[in-house]
């Protein structure tokens, strides 16, 4: 049952911040696809919701002058998944967006909401981690840029300060053109939360090119730097070794979707497969 709350709508970031300040228990509302069912299930709703979807700049997906990309906090996952600049330059994010929820759900859900909820299985977090995204947040103390690597603190917990509003997520120019392979294990073939997901990404340039992100196997979405380094050194030949590192690095639990031991094993299997698939793709392209 959805408890009573106050609904307010902001037309600007400043107004959103002010509205948030106006009540002791406020929450920003973007897509609402996590917030609303959770409020129903727990029987607890915030005192005030501050809807930020009418803030014009939050709805934008736009190229940054330096070649990066800015994704407004209110842009839907469906929109991000199909935006030409995302598909062409940051296809890894498009892939992870497509993996999130169902088709109707993606029309409402937002990338910002997905990461602010900080679930260990947040699908878009895998891409944002691999692409070294930066979260732009406005708060009572001004605008802050938070690396995605510093955002997730624990299940449902972020490093955002009270009252801070994520306005955009920026993908750096250095990540443009990155290619990735998402291995995602679910209990059925249709829509499901990942029991385990592994995203292996290769950046187009630089000596530290590999990225490995894991979902649903630790309190937060995570990267495995050691496995990445190994892949940078050994390429596909290091797949098995990287897999072993990732298996050791993750901290899965038992739940209704799978056991910890199965999850751990699958991290290895999915990682190896992703690495080989990426190599095959590269080979196929003659690169």
């Amino acid at each position: 049952m959805l408890r009573r709350f106050e609904y307010t709508q902001a037309r600007s970031v400043e107004e959103a911040l002010a509205l948030w300040q106006g009540s002791p228990d406020s929450r920003y509302l973007a897509g609402g696809t996590d917030l609303i069912p959770r409020a129903r299930a727990t029987g607890r709703a915030p005192a005030r919701l501050v809807d930020v979807k009418a803030v014009p700049e939050l709805d934008q997906v736009r190229a940054l002058p330096d070649g990066g990309l800015s994704i407004g906090a209110a842009a839907s996952v469906a929109r991000v998944a199909t935006a030409p600049e995302v598909r062409q330059r940051f296809p890894v994010l498009a892939t992870c967006c497509q993996a999130l929820g169902s088709y109707p759900l993606r029309q409402r859900a937002t990338v910002a909401g997905n990461i602010c909820n900080a679930s260990p299985c947040a699908d878009t977090a895998a891409a944002l981690l691999d692409l070294d995204a930066v979260v732009v947040a406005s708060g009572p103390r001004g605008v802050r840029r938070v690396s995605i690597h510093e955002l997730f603190v624990g299940p449902g917990q972020t490093s955002l300060e009270r009252g801070e509003l994520v306005t955009a997520i920026e993908l750096p120019a250095a990540s443009a053109g990155a290619r990735g392979q998402l291995g995602r294990l679910t209990r059925r073939q249709g829509v499901d939360i990942a029991t385990v997901a592994v995203l292996v990404t290769v950046l187009p340039a630089g000596s530290l090119r590999h990225r490995v992100a894991l979902l649903s196997v630790s309190p937060t979405p995570m990267r495995v730097a050691e496995a990445e380094n190994l892949l940078d050194q050994k390429g596909p030949d290091g797949a098995a070794e990287a897999a072993a590192i990732a298996r050791a690095a993750c901290r899965p639990i038992d739940d209704v979707r799978g056991s910890a031991s199965y999850r751990r094993d699958m991290v290895g299997v999915l990682l190896e497969r992703a690495v080989h698939a990426l190599a095959a793709e590269r080979g196929g392209r003659g690169a």
Binding site: R187, R188, Q189, G190, V191, I193, V256, R257
Partner: peptide, 16 residues
């Protein structure tokens, strides 16, 4: 019942 929801109790979909 630990999986008393359609999030946790899965039935086949069009993709299955």
């Amino acid at each position: 019942v630990r999986n008393a929801s359609l999030v946790d109790y899965k039935i086949p979909t069009s993709e299955d």
